[in-house]
Nucleic acid binder design. Structure first.
Length: 358
DNA sequence: CGACTTTGACCAGCGC
DNA sequence: GCGCTGGTCAAAGTCG
């Protein structure tokens, strides 16, 4: 059976890597991250998308495999206690010089569920009770591989960005919450070092999962950022980290290790977090024009100078049943400096975001 | 001794 | 109203 993580990774890559057009799209525009977001955003679980399409609102991928020298496998070495032991397939390009992969995946997405308009959504809600996880899965939008630096190479997958529309019945009741962003990380360690200091304040057993969920709070006095860490019950190697809120301070563990790549980004940074203060590299992402439009259609909000991308992709024929061929060697896109600064608020600072300049 | 983790208790939201 | 679940609190324990 195909590894669902890999398959979804493949999909996400293909989303960005299928065109020769070099249109660039800011990463945070893709994410729709902004400090003034009023809704909760999630990166949906890939496994939600693997659920039967009759109940899933995400893509329903089907896959084939074939050989491709352009693909690569990362981090096949033994696990280290503090690093990922598992890796998913990354797209081609230099990407750190991984070995060629054995197979390429061509992913076909029958995203009948993606693109539900609000009306359609409501109709859907009326007729079918959805699991909470499925509710989050209103469209797989984005998946980015991030690698840890050096020997602690790791792949982090950003899964589809979804908007969780609050139920109308509880709109008034629910207290306003900070925007949430979830990251799925293949890792053996639950609590990934992300440059900030966290204090664990709770742990709860999760329903339908043998793994407990841990609750952390940023130890900075004025910072009320929280994060939840739990393991995916469908793939125990995946750690789901959900961040809530935005840091009001710089990373206390930030170690300035400027590199040519990071210094480049530091020039265009937002100033939010000094780009040179991280050893990040950005893997460029390119979105073909039609797909960029697709992502732009996910962006009804324009907050803080960033066009957020979250939107139901209603009536988007470009994604319906579209077939993406991954491992395009021409894959690249850019994450602009300002977006990058915001990204660093979200992404563990020990991760390297691979910049693919091929 | 301070910072952090552990863990049981408590509370609120939600569905039935 | 009741029970389930998620989220948080706080006392106790651990560690450097």
């Amino acid at each position: 059976m195909e590894d669902p993580t890999e398959s979804l990774t493949s999909f996400s890559e293909s989303l960005f890597a299928t065109s020769n057009q070099q249109q660039q799209l800011g990463f945070m525009e893709l994410l729709g991250i902004s400090g003034s977001l009023q809704e909760e955003y999630y990166f949906s679980s890939p496994f939600d998308s693997m659920l039967p399409s009759s109940t899933t609102r995400g893509f329903t991928p089907s896959m084939t495999t074939s050989s491709s020298p352009a693909a690569e496998v990362l981090n096949n070495g033994p696990a280290t206690p503090n690093s990922s032991s598992v890796s998913s397939v990354s797209s081609g390009g230099n990407g750190g010089g991984g070995a060629p992969n054995d197979h390429e995946q061509t992913t076909t997405y029958c995203d009948k569920s993606v693109g539900l308009g609000d009306d359609e959504e409501e109709q859907h809600d009326k007729t079918k009770k959805l699991e909470p996880s499925l509710m989050q899965n209103k469209g797989l939008l984005l998946c980015v591989n991030i690698r840890f630096a050096g020997s602690e190479e790791m792949i982090v997958d950003f899964w589809g960005l979804c908007r969780l529309k609050p139920k109308k019945t509880c709109e008034k009741k629910k207290k306003e919450r900070e925007p949430k962003f979830a990251f799925m990380t293949k890792s053996e360690v639950d609590h990934l070092e992300d440059g900030y200091r966290w204090r664990k304040y709770g742990q709860k057993a999760v329903k339908n999962s043998p793994f407990p969920r841990s609750y952390y709070r940023c130890t900075s006095a004025s910072c009320n950022v929280k994060k939840r860490v739990e393991r995916s019950f469908t793939d125990h190697s995946i750690v789901v980290t959900t961040y809530e809120g935005q840091h009001t301070h710089h990373s206390p563990l930030m170690m300035p290790r400027p590199s040519p790549l990071t210094s480049r980004y530091s020039q265009g940074g937002s100033g939010r977090i000094p780009a040179g203060g991280f050893s990040h590299q950005l893997r460029t992402l390119t979105l073909p024009s039609d797909q960029q439009q697709q992502f732009n259609n996910f962006a009804p909000l324009n907050c803080g100078g960033y066009n957020s991308i979250v939107h139901t992709a209603a009536n988007e024929p470009s994604l319906r049943g579209s077939q993406f061929s991954s491992r395009s060697p021409a894959s690249s896109a850019s994450i602009r400096g300002g977006d990058y600064g915001l990204l660093q608020d979200m992404v563990p600072s020990t991760m390297n975001i691979i910049k693919d300049e091929s």
